[in-house]
Amino acid sequence: MQKITPFLWFDGNAEEAVNFYVSVFKKNSKVLEMRRAGDTDAAPVVSATFQLHGQRFMALNGGPHYKFSEAISLFVDCETQEEVDELWSKLLQGGGQPQQCGWLKDRFGLSWQIIPSVLGKMLGDKDPEKSRRVMEAMLGMVKIDIQGLQRAYDGAGK
């Protein structure tokens, strides 16, 4: 069992959010438990436990007192542009908002970073000019474009 579990506060829509996240991250993702305020499936969900890519999360219908902010985001390490594109598109469904540098807010207000692995490798390059160009390119992007990063890394357009 994992020692630390992210605990997410929702305003009455935890069940919808949990089902949405499990549908987006299908691989090794599932609802583990829905705890309801009654004995029927129609009773409102009080809390839920779910898994995304093997990572355990908890959700609470805590009410309108607290909202998500960018102070906490979920970072998703993507291997390909296709994975970036797919997750970006799915997480924006239903009213999400794209933001700068690979960040977005989903329709529940939770912030996500949809980042290709290659970005970290390029930013960590020993050549400071290459990493500077990549950083500059990334700062001009909303959804991260691996080809655009590669062009900047290679110095294309100089």
Rank of each mutant, 00 (worst) to 15 (best):
M1R: 10
I4F: 11
F7V: 03
F7P: 03
F10A: 02
G12Q: 04
A14R: 01
E15Y: 00
E15W: 01
V18I: 14
S23R: 05
S23Q: 06
K26W: 00
S29H: 02
K30I: 00
V31P: 10
E33R: 13
E33Q: 14
M34H: 07
R35W: 07
A37G: 06
A37V: 01
G38S: 06
A42F: 06
A42K: 14
P44R: 10
P44E: 11
F50Q: 04
Q51P: 03
H53K: 11
H53E: 15
Q55A: 13
Q55I: 12
A59I: 05
L60G: 02
L60E: 14
N61E: 09
K67T: 13
S69T: 15
E70A: 13
I72N: 14
S73Y: 13
F75C: 11
F75G: 06
V76F: 15
V76P: 04
C78W: 05
C78K: 09
V84D: 05
E86N: 14
L87A: 07
L92D: 07
Q93T: 11
G94N: 06
G95T: 07
G96P: 06
Q97M: 12
Q97F: 00
Q99C: 12
G102Y: 01
W103K: 05
W103C: 05
L104E: 12
F108M: 10
F108L: 08
G109K: 10
S111A: 13
S111T: 14
W112T: 01
W112S: 09
I114E: 09
I115D: 12
I115E: 11
I115Q: 14
P116A: 09
S117P: 00
G120V: 00
G120S: 05
K121E: 15
G124L: 10
D127R: 09
R132Q: 15
M138R: 07
G140T: 11
G140W: 03
G140N: 15
I144Y: 10
D145G: 04
I146Q: 04
I146G: 02
Q147S: 14
Q147H: 11
L149W: 02
Q150C: 01
R151H: 12
D154V: 00
K158Y: 00
